[in-house]
Computed example of a mutant assay.
Amino acid sequence: MNYLSAIGSYAIMVREVFKKPTKWAIMRNLILKEIDELIFGSLGIIIFISIFIGGVVAIQTALNLTNPLIPKNLIGFATRQSVILEFAPTFTSIIMAGKVGSYITSSIGTMRVTEQIDALEVMGVNSLNYLVFPKIIAMLFYPFIVAIAMYVGIFGGWVANVLGNHSSSAEFVEGIKLDFISFHVTYSFIKSVVFAFIIATLPSFHGYYMKGGALDVGKASTVAFVWTSVVIIILNFILTQLLLG
């Protein structure tokens, strides 16, 4: 029953986010602030991790191609498929759940502990709209990060492949072009939009409804990260079955 109650509370929160909107002059600044904090502030770590993930995929694929009859362009093909289908949208989302989700939970949780949310309600402001809606809009730009992760991941695979002398640059590029299905990119972006909504709202839920003092903010952030990651993994399975099954 606790899980059902939590799901019901989450659904109510999401519904309330879109009620009684804050004035656009104020909301615009909040959205721009969240875009800078959640999206641009995450680019560095995403680029860094994507380069090495792509490199590792390329190296592992190359080391497993022991049969001389298997063409070397499969290294580029496997790297492209792995990065586009899974590593860019899903692995990146887990990272964002830790970085962005923890920030969202702790910032809203701190406002709850210090009674700033109560002050917003007293002033007649819809605190959920004021706090959560800008984060949802900002995370709509999340596919932009996923696109960069795709490009950088494949580039990292190319660098590792060439530097490791596993195959020629031409063979790797040939593998990237081999049997390319454009819907795979669309599928990845669809997943990223769904994950973005979860990353924006689920940590907000844990921060907004947290109870206790300052020490409980950290605990709420940890719980939010765990549940956000679990939901992302479950939705990844469901969306993969629906879109590619």
Rank of each mutant, 00 (worst) to 15 (best):
E115C: 06
E34S: 14
V194Y: 03
M13K: 06
I12F: 10
G55I: 00
F155W: 09
I53L: 11
H184M: 14
I137M: 11
I75V: 10
T228A: 14
D118Q: 11
Q81H: 06
E37M: 12
I59H: 01
S204P: 04
L43M: 12
N29K: 09
F91M: 11
I108D: 04
S169Y: 05
A88I: 00
L65R: 02
Q241T: 08
A147Q: 07
A88S: 08
S107G: 10
K211A: 14
L239V: 06
M1H: 14
I95Y: 03
G76H: 03
F144S: 11
L38G: 04
I104D: 05
L235W: 04
F225G: 09
V125Y: 06
V159T: 07
N165R: 05
F205E: 06
G54Q: 01
S127P: 01
L4N: 14
V230W: 00
S188M: 04
A200E: 05
I238T: 10
Y3T: 13
V56D: 12
G55L: 00
H206P: 00
E37H: 13
I238P: 04
M210R: 07
N29Q: 09
T22L: 14
Y10G: 13
A149N: 05
S42N: 07
G41A: 13
I234P: 00
T92I: 06
S229N: 08
Y103S: 15
Y142K: 09
F189M: 14
V230S: 10
A196N: 07
T79Q: 06
T66A: 13
Q116N: 11
L74E: 12
K19C: 14
F237Y: 13
Q116K: 08
V83T: 10
A147C: 13
F197I: 14
V194N: 08
D179R: 02
T240Q: 09
R112M: 11
K23P: 07
V230R: 02
S107W: 00
I51A: 10
F180P: 02
V159C: 08
F133E: 05
K177S: 14
A58S: 15
L131R: 06
Q116P: 11
A138E: 03
G44I: 06
V83G: 10
K20C: 11
V194R: 03
S102Y: 03
K99M: 10
L43Q: 01
G212T: 05
T114E: 12
M123S: 12
S127Y: 01
I198H: 02
I39V: 12
T186S: 14
V223H: 10
G245T: 06
A11K: 05
S9P: 03
I117K: 05
E171V: 05
R112N: 11
D36L: 09
F205H: 08
K20G: 11
V14G: 12
G98T: 03
F155Y: 14
V226A: 15
A170I: 09
V230G: 10
I233K: 04
I75R: 02
K99V: 06
G98M: 02
M111K: 13
T90I: 12
N161P: 00
E16R: 10
I136K: 02
K211G: 13
A25C: 08
A78W: 03
M96E: 02
T110S: 15
A160Q: 01
N161E: 04
Y208S: 14
V152N: 08
